[in-house]
Simulated scan of single mutants.
Amino acid sequence: MSRTTKKLAAIASTTAAAALAVAVTATPALAWTAGNFTATLNGNMVIDAGIAAECTDSTLTGTIDAAGNLTITDASVSGCGVTVTPEGLPWSGSLNNGVASINGFSMSAIGCTYGGNISGSFTGTDLPVTATFTEQTVAKTSGWLCPGSATVTATYDFNPA
C-alpha cells in the first residue's frame, strides 16, 4: 500500500467512525404512541390503614404523551366493602424506563383521606403494559382519628382507549 493510499484509508476509517458516532447519539429514544388510555385493575387493590380494604374493581382513564407522561383525568374504585372515592383529579404520572409513577394520588374512605406519589414497575415500550404498585405508602392528608399513613398495592393493565 502506498503512503497516499494508507492516508486515504485512515481518513475514510476516521470519517466512517465519526459518522457512526453521530448516528448512534442522534438516534431518538423510543416513543410511546400518544393518545388516550384506560387502565383496569388486574386482581385486587388493597388499601391498608390499619384495617385493609380490598377492592375488586378500579379503572383509571386519561392520556399518555410520546415521552410516557400520564394525565389521569378520571378514576373509579368499587367492590371495597366501604365507599372509596378518588380525590384531587387530574393526577399526573409517567411510564419511563421501567418505572411507573402516579403523582397526586389521593383516595378517601370512612372520613380519612390519604394521598401522595406512588411508584411501581412495568415492562414494555408501548401500550399495552402492566404496572404493579406494591405497598406504596401514602400519608394522611385529612381526617380525624385516622392512622398517619396507609399502604396501597395494585396492578393495572394500561391499554390504548
Rank of each mutant, 00 (worst) to 15 (best):
M1W: 08
S2D: 13
S2I: 00
S2C: 03
T5F: 05
T5L: 10
K6H: 09
K7S: 13
K7A: 15
L8D: 05
L8H: 03
A9Q: 02
A9I: 07
A10K: 02
A10R: 00
A10I: 02
S13W: 00
T14D: 06
T15I: 05
A16M: 04
A16L: 11
A16G: 00
A18T: 03
A19I: 08
L20K: 11
L20I: 14
A21F: 13
A23S: 07
V24A: 10
T25Q: 01
A26Y: 02
T27F: 09
P28V: 03
A29K: 11
A29W: 01
L30A: 06
T33N: 09
A34D: 05
G35H: 00
N36T: 11
F37A: 08
T38S: 14
T38L: 09
A39N: 06
L41S: 06
N42V: 13
M45G: 12
V46H: 07
V46K: 14
I47F: 06
I47C: 05
D48H: 03
A49P: 06
A52H: 05
A52S: 14
E54Y: 04
C55Q: 04
T56G: 11
T56F: 03
D57Y: 05
T59F: 06
T59H: 06
L60V: 07
T61N: 10
G62F: 06
G62D: 07
A66S: 15
A67M: 09
T71D: 04
T71W: 00
D74Q: 05
D74V: 01
A75Y: 03
A75V: 07
G79F: 00
C80S: 06
V82N: 03
T83N: 09
T85K: 10
P86G: 06
E87P: 03
L89C: 07
L89I: 09
L89F: 10
L89W: 08
P90I: 06
W91C: 02
G93P: 02
G93H: 08
S94K: 14
L95I: 10
L95G: 05
N97S: 15
G98S: 08
A100L: 11
A100H: 10
I102M: 09
G104Y: 10
F105V: 09
S106R: 15
S106C: 13
M107W: 12
S108F: 05
A109E: 14
A109N: 15
A109Y: 15
I110L: 15
G111A: 12
T113P: 08
T113E: 13
G116C: 10
N117Q: 13
G120D: 08
G120V: 11
S121Y: 13
F122I: 01
T123W: 13
T123L: 14
D126K: 05
L127S: 14
P128Q: 10
V129K: 05
T130S: 15
T130A: 14
F133L: 10
F133E: 13
F133T: 12
F133Q: 11
T134I: 14
E135K: 12
E135F: 03
A139G: 09
T141R: 08
S142H: 05
G143C: 01
W144G: 15
L145H: 12
L145Y: 13
P147T: 13
P147V: 03
A150G: 01
A150Q: 02
A150S: 05
T151Y: 00
V152Q: 07
V152S: 00
A154C: 07
T155W: 12
F158P: 02
N159Y: 04
A161N: 12
A161H: 06
